[in-house]
């Protein structure tokens, strides 16, 4: 797995770019900006469903979410660039493993939200929030904050000095 990712990084030129003078810091800065956009859109939407800023119609605020998806895509792309440029530092890192698990959980939560919750929320009118929606919002916010926490801790739990789930 690390070999495959590294080979891809080297073949695609990502590895060389990332290890050039300004590669890593530039991509990190973009990763941080994507994070801010995600919190500013999806995070604010979650806070609204949790009861903050009552009075703002939920479906109107939802128009911010496509920007959050853009931020998410930016971060998946930039995150992938980190991983293929130093796979060992990520795959065997407990902070990274927890981070990916939280992203999977957040993804399932998103699917659940659009399949079962968003329809009733829209149907319930401009401002009412059913309890399921609050739970979904709390899970979403917890996951994304957890993702930031784990992301920041990747440099703390650097392998090979720490344990991980499969080594």
């Amino acid at each position: 797995m690390p070999e495959t990712l590294l080979a891809f990084g080297q073949k695609s030129g990502i590895y060389d770019f990332m290890h050039s003078a300004w590669g890593w810091p530039t991509v990190e800065s973009l990763h941080f900006m994507g994070l801010c956009v995600l919190i500013g859109t999806v995070g604010m939407f979650d806070l609204r469903m949790l009861g903050l800023a009552r009075g703002i119609p939920i479906h109107a605020l939802h128009k911010l979410v496509p920007w959050g998806i853009a931020g998410y895509c930016l971060n998946v792309t930039t995150g992938f660039m980190f991983v293929v440029s130093a796979p060992d530092q990520y795959l065997f890192n407990p902070a990274f493993q927890v981070k990916l698990s939280l992203m999977v959980l957040a993804g399932i939560n998103v699917l659940f939200f659009y399949r079962f919750v968003f329809g009733p929320v829209k149907a319930a009118g401009a401002t009412a929030v059913p309890p399921t929606a609050r739970t979904v919002a709390a899970v979403s916010l917890t996951c994304w904050v957890g993702v930031i926490v784990c992301g920041r801790l990747i440099t703390y739990y650097r392998p090979p000095y720490h344990w991980c789930f499969w080594c």
Binding site: L35, C36, G40, T41, A60, L64, W67, V149
Partner: peptide, 24 residues
């Protein structure tokens, strides 16, 4: 880092709204 996300995030939401995103 987390607080940065929320400080900048509130500004992202407000600035996007001023710029015409989510006009309702």
């Amino acid at each position: 880092s987390v607080a940065m996300g929320f400080v900048v995030g509130v500004h992202v939401a407000t600035d996007l709204r001023i710029l015409g995103v989510a006009p309702r």
